[in-house]
Simulated scan of single mutants.
Amino acid sequence: MTRKAAGGLQRAFFLWTIAGTSLIVAAAAGAAVVEVFRGTADAGTFVWGMIGIAALLESLVLFAVGLRLRHRYLNQVQSYDSRGDYLADDGSSRPRIPLLGDGQATQNIRNQSLGGN
């Protein structure tokens, strides 16, 4: 269950990355899009304008789907089963509770100093 939930969040980030790339394409074709809407585009500009409009629509849809996936991930009830396993005991008699609920994070507080040595 944990991998599936994390995969949903990763899919949202992946969709947002593609949406950002589509926005770059739409921005590159921005002048052509304006000419298509004005009705003054020639054949090449019309093609670029249609590509820009399609890229803009694609980015909006992918962003909305990513928001939906993120919303579904954040509203999942976290239980002991979905949090992941407790980390292995290292003999320090400190409880090792998984951080952030995924069971993969560890506490990094051993032998740290502010002096850099």
Rank of each mutant, 00 (worst) to 15 (best):
K4V: 09
G44S: 07
Q104Y: 14
R3S: 12
S79G: 03
W48T: 00
A27T: 09
S92D: 10
Q10D: 14
A43H: 14
R72C: 08
D90Y: 00
A6V: 10
G115C: 03
L15C: 02
R68G: 03
F14E: 14
G20N: 07
G116R: 07
V47G: 02
R83K: 04
A105N: 13
D102M: 01
N111S: 10
A41L: 02
S93G: 05
Y80L: 15
G91M: 04
R72N: 09
R11P: 02
R68E: 07
L87W: 06
A64Q: 01
R72G: 09
G39P: 06
Q107V: 15
F37Y: 11
Q10C: 06
A55M: 01
L69Q: 13
A54D: 03
I53N: 01
R96Q: 13
T106V: 05
A32C: 07
G103I: 07
R94C: 03
Y73F: 09
D81C: 06
A55H: 00
N111Y: 12
G91I: 01
G103H: 06
L60G: 14
Y86D: 15
L87M: 03
R68C: 05
G8V: 12
G7S: 08
L67G: 07
F13K: 12
T2G: 09
V33R: 11
V47P: 01
D89Q: 10
D42N: 12
F14H: 11
A55Q: 01
P95T: 11
D81N: 07
M50K: 10
V34K: 09
V77N: 01
H71S: 04
P98L: 06
G116H: 05
F63T: 07
A88V: 01
I109V: 13
D85F: 15
A27G: 05
W48V: 00
Q76L: 10
L100C: 04
Y80F: 14
A12N: 12
L23I: 04
D90V: 00
L67H: 05
Q10S: 14
W16R: 00
E58M: 10
G39M: 04
D90P: 01
T40I: 08
Y80V: 15
A28R: 13
L74E: 13
A55K: 01
